[in-house]
Design a binder for these strands. Structure first.
Length: 885
RNA sequence: GGGAGAUUAGCUCAGUCGGUUUAGAGCACCUGCCUUACAAGCAGGGGGUCAAUGGUUCGAAUCCGUUAUCUCCCACCA
């Protein structure tokens, strides 16, 4: 087969991906092998691929391909997440574009549009993942809102409800007035926001609802909420406010009388020391309200507008109302002053709307038993976090976990299976039929139309927390009548999870809870946290900044293998990645290097009559040892999830050891043929290397593997076993290292002295030089002969040098300035003497000799001996040079 | 405010149990080469008081204290 001079990535990638799919190489079924399982962190169903996905899925694919080659039954389950809020807001926006408002259509109509949208855009991201080379078992593709998985979610709700862990409660929630839903604490982002601190006068009432001339000053950032005030609160120890004890004040503008109360919560030195208590619109105020039995006056509606309760400015949007009420207060003489003020304000992660703390009826799942058990799974080491530092974060959160608000005021999602009887009683069942039956038991003459299902849907995480279970067996264990499932039994628990640290609580922690609860076992054993992909100067990637490259464009420009390698190059676990296109160029360059090296080897003429050159024998022996040694290192890196280290180790083995050294040694002269033994060894090494690279760069490696020799139909590198480390001779590897340094030294001397790399030179070496490697030095350094001698004697002009403790001499009569060499040797000598002094100082320190382990002292003694021998040798070289002046 | 982590070469990062002559890598940089696999390359080279400071120790990039700077998480002061 002809190999093009340049590697054509896109052609090769399409060809092999189609081949892999056609042969169902990604598909897994339970069998006798050990399973290795990963479930994909499901991307939003309508999302498109970004660099974060590339990083995450490349890592997943490396792990799964490695496991496959290690002989495990590898199964990577793909799928998508319905992402309630994100998807619903996209659909709402689309409808808006069509002139349709969500309020004007029914739930059923809306869902019809939403499903249409999902069909149209859903799964694009999964198609994109194929371009990246992801070896997902596509036959197992799941969607969190597909009927079976929705059923799992509903059953889970019923399960926990009947267990008594789900309850309905009125709570202060984070209301998103734009998304018209409550969002969890974790979905609120606090940002410092420039606003004003309004100092308002509240006049003391005379007891009959009329203002006196005395007043107190209250500072607030939210004057539009004064109508919802239930009290004014001061610190009981604040002397400034003793005079107003038991008095009442009037709310400005509406003249409503409210009491002055005392509570420790109020800080004396903040603001004016007086707090307006607005239980309906502030979480702390709510708690104060509960303590003091204050009425709750809710004046803001779902859309963030003032309602009738406000009495004034009814229907105004909250920020508009703020502007207007300030004006009204000013006119009424209630404003003392207005200060600029920067304070943290909560924003919705999804819609970026300012969060409105609001009381509302929500469904909650108790964390009381789930959280401690999930904490123990990690603390006891059953689940490992990589890097380990996230354990601290996790512990802190789990120890303070609050009950999980699982209801969302949306339509896109699993509708809560709670049904309300006209009298307010609630039945929870997984179908209307069952619910109606249950309702009849409570109220015998109820009609079907009187039973109303809860309008809310469940939090998306309430479905994704089941993911590692439900993708295998949507009929959740724990359900009455659940039957054992072969897939679940085989694949669960999964092995590793690769995800971003920002969803450690949303998703990771909750999957652990669900796993423990339903499977009595953790969902995975290792969690590898990636960093966030940022741009070159450390900014988060964002659409508005325009600093987020399109992965598909990069793939078409550089090839998927290059993109994969580029992303992995500087991604140690948990560290953010500063993305730079240069990394991907490096990936492309590596592809080219691999490609060209193969072209070289494949281009050789093999002659069975040619004897194996001595240098090639040494090279093959060395590389075989080096390969085994490196495989061991790589395996160790993988076992510790040090993927970028494993990658770099393989990269250097290929580029430096194989290409720059091994191939250069065995390369026949132009036009000459290569011997059979060397050719076979070279190709064998190449095959091992390509297999090592495959998990990282699947496409080019398949292409080359298929070209190494004729492969049977249906063969693939994907199932070729990972090369195993054999025994290796470390001493020989070190000896070869000496030869390598010798070559570098000779080349360096040539360069310094301006001697052509091809000018033949002789080399003298003393005892300790590994003569076995001499042919290598001769070939790579253009040395005519390596001569072993006890004494360089009167060698004439030349350059002496030392490698470790081996002395070498490169005679350069007539080619070198002896004076310069003398100066150089003198400076070396000086350095060695200072070094020796240092070592001796250490050794003459009795404390050191007494305390340090014998091994360390021995090392110091060897240093001393080596330095002495080097000094001796330098001195003799110096003499020799001086004699030849 | 509470907590966690970090600070090593121009950049991104390794550095395991405190000890192996002068602390490593990749990229970038400098010099010379278009040498029949590869200029997306080859060969050679330069570059770091390991944030500062004090301590423990025979010995500290590594352990402890303090300071500075940065990042993340949690809570948010009306």
């Amino acid at each position: 087969m002809d190999l093009s001079a340049k590697y054509n990535a896109s052609e090769v990638e399409d060809k092999w991906y189609a081949y892999w799919l056609e042969n169902k190489f990604f598909h897994s079924e339970p069998d006798g092998r050990e399973p290795y399982t990963i479930v994909i962190p499901p991307p939003n169903v309508t999302g498109i691929l970004h660099m974060g996905h590339v990083l995450n899925n490349t890592l997943n694919d490396v792990l799964i391909r490695k496991a496959r080659m290690d002989g495990k039954n590898a199964c990577w389950v793909p799928g998508t997440d319905h992402a309630s809020i994100a998807t619903e807001s996209k659909v709402v926006a689309k409808l808006k574009g069509m002139g349709i408002s969500k309020e004007d259509i029914t739930r059923e109509e809306f869902l019809k549009y939403a499903w249409e949208w999902k069909e149209e855009h859903g799964g694009i991201i999964l198609k994109q993942l194929r371009k990246l080379g992801a070896s997902c078992d596509w036959d197992r593709t799941r969607f969190t809102m597909e009927p079976a998985l929705s059923e799992a979610v509903i059953n889970t709700f019923v399960y926990f409800y009947k267990k008594g862990w789900i309850y309905r409660g009125v709570r202060m929630v984070n209301w998103d007035p734009e998304g018209h839903t409550a969002v969890s604490d974790d979905e609120v982002i606090h940002k410092d926001t420039q606003s004003h601190f309004y100092h308002m006068r509240y006049f003391i009432s005379d007891g009959h609802g009329n203002p006196t001339d005395k007043y107190i000053v209250i500072a607030t950032t939210r004057p539009e909420t004064i109508m919802a005030d239930s009290a004014i609160c001061v610190n009981p120890n604040d002397e400034r406010h003793f005079w107003m004890k038991g008095k009442k004040v009037l709310i400005p503008l509406i003249n409503k009388e409210i009491p002055i109360i005392e509570d420790d919560y109020v800080e004396m030195d903040f603001g004016t020391g007086c707090l307006k208590v607005t239980p309906a619109h502030d979480a702390h105020d709510y708690e104060i309200g509960m303590r003091h039995n204050l009425p709750i006056i809710d004046i803001i509606d779902d859309h963030g507008r003032l309602n009738e309760q406000a009495q004034i400015l009814v229907g105004e949007e909250r920020f508009e109302a703020r502007k207007k009420i300030v004006k009204m207060l000013e006119e009424a003489g209630n404003i003392e002053k207005i200060e600029d003020y920067t304070s943290p304000v909560g924003y919705s992660e999804r819609t970026n709307a300012v969060i409105e703390p609001r009381l509302s009826a929500q469904w909650f799942l108790k964390m009381g038993e789930l959280a401690p058990r999930a904490l123990a799974s990690v603390e006891d080491g059953i689940i490992k976090f990589i890097p380990d530092k996230y354990r601290n974060t996790y512990r802190h959160w789990m120890e303070n976990a609050r009950d999980w608000c699982i209801s969302r005021q949306l339509w896109w999602g699993q509708r809560i299976p709670a049904y309300y009887l006209p009298d307010g009683q609630i039945v929870v069942e997984n179908s209307f039929e069952k619910a109606f039956k249950a309702a009849q038991a409570l109220c015998p003459d109820i009609k079907p139309e009187d039973l109303k299902q809860d309008e809310d849907v469940l939090d998306t995480w309430f479905s994704s927390w089941l993911w590692p279970i439900s993708v295998f067996d949507p009929d959740m264990p724990g359900n009455p009548g659940h039957k054992p499932n072969a897939d679940l039994a085989y694949y669960y628990p999964t092995n590793d999870l690769v995800t971003a640290p920002d969803i450690i609580f949303f998703w990771v922690a909750r999957m652990i809870m669900a796993g423990n609860e339903f499977m009595d076992d953790v969902p995975f054993h290792n969690v590898y946290f990636t960093g966030i992909v940022r741009d070159k100067i450390g900014r988060k990637m964002s659409k508005t900044l325009g600093n987020s490259p399109d992965p598909l464009e990069l793939i078409s420009k550089y090839g998927a293998d290059a993109v994969r390698l580029g992303m992995l190059l500087c991604s140690s676990a948990g560290n953010d990645i500063l993305y730079d296109e240069a990394m991907i160029e490096q990936g492309r360059n590596f592809c080219a290097k691999i490609w060209n090296s193969f072209r070289l080897v494949k281009g050789w003429n093999v002659d069975p009559d040619v004897a194996t050159p001595a240098a090639s024998v040494v090279a093959a022996k060395w590389f075989e040892n080096k390969l085994s040694q490196t495989i061991e290192v790589v395996e160790d890196h993988y076992s510790k999830f040090r993927i970028s280290d494993a990658l770099m180790t393989i990269y250097k083995l290929f580029w430096d050891d194989y290409c720059s050294w091994y191939l250069e040694i065995v390369k026949p002269a132009f036009g000459a043929a290569v011997d059979k033994a060397t050719y076979d060894a070279t190709l064998g090494f190449f095959e091992a290397l390509v297999k090592m690279i495959h998990p990282i760069m699947p496409f080019i490696t398949e292409e080359l593997w298929q070209n190494i020799e004729e492969r049977p139909a249906g063969a693939t590198i994907m199932f070729a076993p990972t090369p195993k480390a054999g025994a290796y001779d470390e001493a020989f590897i070190r000896e070869f290292e000496t030869a390598r340094e010798t070559v570098v030294n000779v080349r360096s001397i040539r360069k310094q002295k301006n001697i052509s790399p091809k000018e033949p030179l002789a080399l003298k070496v003393k005892g300790g030089f590994p003569m076995e490697t001499a042919p290598v030095v001769e070939k790579l350094a253009s040395i005519t002969s390596v001569e072993l001698t006890d004494d360089f004697g009167d060698t004439g002009a030349g350059v002496p040098f030392i490698i470790g403790t081996v002395e070498l001499f490169l005679p350069l009569t007539g080619l070198v300035n002896v004076e310069e060499e003398i100066a150089k040797v003198e400076s070396d000598l000086k350095y060695q003497r200072i070094f020796l002094e240092g070592v001796r100082r250490k050794l003459s320190n009795e404390s050191f000799v007494a305390h340090a382990p014998e091994k360390i002292v021995a090392v110091e003694r060897k240093k001393e001996a080596d330095a002495l021998s080097r000094i001796e040798s330098l001195e003799s070289q110096l003499n020799s040079l001086r004699n030849n002046k």
